[in-house]
Every structure is written in structure tokens, then in C-alpha cells.
Write a protein that binds this DNA or RNA. Sequence first.
DNA 1: TTACTTATTGAAATAAACTTGCAATTAAGT
DNA 2: ACTTAATTGCAAGTTTATTTCAATAAGTAA
Lengths: 174, 174
Amino acid sequence: MIPKKTFPAARLKNVQHINNQTIFAKVAHSHSHEHDLIDLRAKLRGKDRRITKPREEILELLGKEDHPVTAKFIHEKLSGTCDLVTVYRSLKLLESMSLVKRFNFGDNTTRFELISSTDHGHHHHLICKACRTVVEIDECFDPSMESKIAKKHGFHNVTHELEFFGICSSCQAT
Amino acid sequence: MIPKKTFPAARLKNVQHINNQTIFAKVAHSHSHEHDLIDLRAKLRGKDRRITKPREEILELLGKEDHPVTAKFIHEKLSGTCDLVTVYRSLKLLESMSLVKRFNFGDNTTRFELISSTDHGHHHHLICKACRTVVEIDECFDPSMESKIAKKHGFHNVTHELEFFGICSSCQAT
DNA sequence: TTACTTATTGAAATAAACTTGCAATTAAGT
DNA sequence: ACTTAATTGCAAGTTTATTTCAATAAGTAA
């Protein structure tokens, strides 16, 4: 909410700056890129589900993105090929098929990211509170913490969402 | 979103079950309870800001709650004493004064919690994906991880949001 | 290919969360 | 008590996401 006001332009255009981290991510993605479409076909087969142009296009677009993006962003990028409603519906489907993961960076909009085969979608983000630049983070804490918490409170299938927030180097200057 | 459909009643009533953890939290809160109002007065003084009934009431209500609650929930609890808009505005003010913290559990609604003097608002939650029960978590990972990430990417003032999700013991049965 | 079945889409309406503008109110200094 | 301006309430407006339903198109079988 705070950055929404302070940097409307950045939010509107959904700018996501490039740095070493993201370039790396981009390379990693383009490798598994066409594999995702095969995955889509495989998962849809024999399930009263259909392989449609919007679904393929959204998956392809996500494959090219370095960071989680909003439904609105996808719709704009696809400019006219399908309705925003279809984007929402497709993302929900792709999520249910574990091809896409949903993120929330605290600005009241959901972002979606392709689940890469390497980390199974489990990684975290470092977000600049000023300009909303996103950096992908590989590090994670010791998984024993999770199982300890699960055991302590009698929960099963415990997972976690972890995001880091701060001020990036270029925003520190200004 | 998924639990929204599966358990509409739980979400509607904003049910938050009681267990050992939450009872503990309640006790801890009621101690610092009146201290928060003093805090409010101190922070508002000499700043062209006013101590108003809605602000006091919201702070008092949050002091009695064990878990983050929505603006809507606060408005309903306060039943008619002030408008929902005022709740939103007050929460924003209280947040800016570091008296309240904003949380996002991935269901498209913001929840607010009083920042306790003991942990300075830094703690995490374990949320049941089925019934939305919330448990307060004291554990956190080694802070060196945070500084490492900050340094690596040239970020300053790095903080984090960490939430755990799973299925609670009573939902496992059903 | 053609026909058939039904999942999927688009468009409009709806819902929910949150914000904004403005006149009326009220807290706080004098 | 008077004055000033911060705050509130109400109505209207945004934004994000979902639902309804007729039209479309994907997959299957002849």
C-alpha cells in the first residue's frame, strides 16, 4: 500500500529490474520452458480437461518471466488474445495442477510464478519496499524447524511462505 | 481462496480456535493492554494528531485478540460505534505509528495484530489451510541468514515475513 | 471429414476489500 | 467557551477477483 502511492509508475508498469540474480533465473527458466507445455498436456490428458490456447500462452509467458507476475500483467502482455477472466481461471487451473505457484507480497494483489522443475517452486523473494524490485532467493532455513513446529502443534503437511523486504541499493541513494 | 470455498462458515465468522498457544498469548496481551493506550497518547502528542474514541476502541479490541484480525471483524465487534472506513483509516494510522502490524495469510484480506512490547511484533503464524485456525509461533530462524541475504544483494533494512501453513489435528480427522 | 458432446471462453453482472471526496463533527489549544 | 483543523460518516468510486450464461471450440467417435 505504501509503495503503491510512492511509486505508482513502477507498480503500474509492473517493472522488475534486471540484475545478476534475475538474469540467472531467466536462463534457468528458458531451459525448462517447452518442458512445461509437455507437462501441461500430460497433466490434462484423460481428465475431461482441454489444452487451450490461453492456457498454453499463459504458461509460455510465465516461462519467460523472471519473477511472480499479476493476472493483470499477464492479460496486458497477451494483449487481446484472451479475456482477463480467462487469465484468472487458467491460473487457478495451473495452480491446481502444480504448474504455477501463488505469491503475496503484501500489496493486495496475487502474483503467479511458474514452478520450476529444479526447486519444485520452493524458493523465496527479496522485495524492495520502495521500487518493488524482486530478487529470487535460493537460501532457506533448516527444514528441521518446520518439522519441529509441525510436531509441536500437531499439524500435518506443513509448508511455509517466506519473503524478505528491504531497500535495494539504487533506492538507498535517492 | 481454497479454504474460502471449503469452509465458508469459518471464514465468515472469523473463527479462531483456542489451544494452549493462544491462551498463553491472551495472558501476555492483557498485561501490556493499558500500556498500549499510553503508547498511543505518547505517540500522538504534539503531532497535529488526535486521540479519538475509534482509535482507542480499536487498540483496546486488538489488545484482547489472540491473532491477527480483519478490518471487517473489528468493525463487527465494535458494532456501530464507528464506520468501517474509520476502522481502515485508524488501522493505517496505528500501523504507521508501529502500534499495529499488518499480515497477509494468502486469502486476499489483510489482518492486523497489536505489536506486543515483548517481541516488537516479530513473530510468525501457523495457519490451518482447512479451517484457518491460527497458532502463534515464537521460533524463528538464525538472523544471520537475513544479514547474509541483505549483504549479498546490497539491500538495507531487511526484514522478513514468514508464515507456516498446514492441516491442524482436528482437520486431519475429517 | 463431419457430427457430437461438453469443457472452456467472453461479456456483463456481482462481490469483496479498500479508498476518496466532502460536509458535518469533535478533539485540543488558547 | 471559542476557534481551528483533524477526524468522522456517508456516498461514491477503485481494484481485484468471481459467477452466470450463452456462444465457442477442443476432443472423440463415426
